[in-house]
Simulated assay, not measured.
Amino acid sequence: MKTLTLGKTGLTVSELCLGTMTWGTQNTESEGHAQMDMALEAGVTFWDTAEMYPVNPVRAETAGRTEEIIGTWFAARGGRDRVVLATKVAGKGPILRPGEVTTGATMRTAVEASLKRLQTDYIDLYQLHWPNRAHYHFRQMWRYQPPKLDRAAETANMTDILSTAQALVTEGKIRAIGLSNETVWGAARWLHLADTLGLPRMATVQNEYSLLCRQFDTDWAELSVIEDMPLLAFSPLATGLLSGKYAGDVIPEGSRRSLNPDLSGRVTAQVFPAVAAYLGVAARHGLDPCQMAIAFTRTRPFPTIPIIGATTLEQLRTNIGAAGVTLSSEVLEDIAETHRAYPAPY
C-alpha cells in the first residue's frame, strides 16, 4: 500500500481511505472491528467517519454509533497512532441540531462529543460535512439556484469557524480542518480568509466522485491542483452501482438498495446503460469492475484518495486490492469514450 502526503497537512496517509458509514446499521460492531483489522493489516491507515453516521437511514437515535464502534476498537486494540482519523461535523439539517447552522460553538461541541465517542484525545482531520448555504451536491444540481448571500454574515461565520479551528489545533484536539460537499467558490473563500487572517487552511475536500459522477473534473480540478487540496472521493463505486450487483434493476437482499431503493437519486433511466458500458470495459480488459472503478480515481490529474466502503469482508478485500491495479492506456481510453457517451447518468 502506497502512502501519500495529505496536501499541506504534513500527515502521511494510505492511498486508499476506509469508509465506515454502514457500521451500526448494515454492519454490527464486531463486523466493523473485523473491517478495521483487515484494513490495518493491508496498510489502509486512513479512516473516515462522521458524527451523523451510520446512514441508511440517518436517524437521531443511531447518530454517533459509527464513531462509538471505532472507539471500542481503539479501546480493545490500542495503537491510536497507527491510524490517521477523519470525522465531520454535520451541517444544518433535520437530524442533529435541527435548523442550526454550523458555527464555531457548535463545531467545538461536536468535536468534544466525537472525541468522547472515538475514545481518543485528537482527531487528525476534522471536516465540515456540508456548507451552511445552498449547494448543488446530492443530486441538487438539476434544480440548483445560486444562493443570495449576506456576504458580511457569511464571512463572519466562516471566520468564526476558522478561529475556532485554530483554537482546537492549539489545544491539540484536531490537527487539520477540511471541507465536504463544498463548491469551488466556497473553497476559494475559505482559503482566502485563512490566508488573509493567518488562520488554518482548509486542507482537503470530500466530494462525491466516480466513473458515474465527474463534477470535479473542471473548475474543482484546477483549484485542487493549484491549492494542493486533495479530493477525498466518496462513493467511488457509486453506492455499489459500478459493482454490477444492481444490473437489471435488481435489489439484492441486505444491500444498500434494500434500504434506499433509488440510492438517493442515483437510480435513473440512464444509469443502468452507463453501468453496463463500464462493466463491458472491465470485462474486455479482464479487470474486476470494482477494482477498475477505484483504480480509475487514482489516475486523475488532481490529487485523489478514494474512500472505500463495504458491508462484507469479501467486498472490502476486493476493494483494497484496487491499490495493486494499474490501468493501461487502452483501459483509460475506453473509459474516456464511455464517459463521453454517458457524461451524467444521474
Rank of each mutant, 00 (worst) to 15 (best):
S163M: 02
S163N: 12
A165G: 11
A165N: 05
Q166I: 00
Q166R: 14
L168M: 14
L168N: 11
L168S: 10
L168P: 04
A176E: 09
A176M: 00
G178C: 12
L179R: 08
S180I: 12
S180C: 15
E182D: 15
E182F: 08
T183I: 03
W185Y: 06
W185D: 15
W185P: 13
G186H: 07
A187K: 01
R189W: 08
W190G: 03
W190Q: 05
W190R: 08
W190P: 05
L191K: 03
H192V: 03
L193Y: 07
A194D: 04
D195R: 15
D195E: 15
T196Q: 09
T196N: 02
L197P: 00
P200D: 09
R201G: 10
A203D: 12
T204H: 07
N207C: 04
S210Y: 06
L211S: 04
L211Y: 03
L212T: 12
L212R: 04
L212P: 06
C213R: 01
R214L: 06
Q215V: 07
Q215N: 11
F216D: 14
F216V: 14
D219V: 05
W220A: 15
W220H: 11
L223P: 06
S224L: 15
V225F: 01
V225N: 01
I226D: 12
D228I: 00
M229S: 10
M229K: 00
M229E: 11
P230H: 02
L231K: 06
L231G: 01
A233D: 15
A233L: 11
A233P: 04
A233Q: 04
F234H: 13
F234S: 09
F234I: 07
S235Q: 05
S235R: 09
P236T: 13
P236W: 05
L237H: 08
A238R: 11
T239A: 10
G240V: 07
G240R: 11
L241W: 10
L241T: 14
S243Y: 07
S243R: 09
G244I: 14
K245T: 14
Y246R: 12
Y246H: 08
A247S: 14
A247F: 00
A247P: 00
G248L: 00
D249F: 00
V250R: 12
I251V: 15
P252E: 15
P252S: 13
E253L: 10
G254C: 08
R256M: 13
R256K: 13
R257K: 15
R257Q: 13
S258Q: 08
S258G: 07
L259Q: 07
L259D: 10
N260P: 00
N260W: 04
P261Q: 07
P261L: 09
P261D: 11
L263P: 08
S264I: 02
G265L: 07
G265H: 05
R266Q: 14
R266F: 05
V267G: 09
T268H: 00
A269I: 07
A269R: 13
A269V: 13
Q270R: 15
Q270T: 05
V271G: 02
F272Q: 13
P273W: 01
P273M: 08
A274S: 06
A274G: 07
L279H: 01
G280N: 14
V281N: 05
A282R: 11
G286F: 04
G286Q: 10
D288M: 07
P289Q: 04
Q291C: 03
I294G: 03
A295K: 11
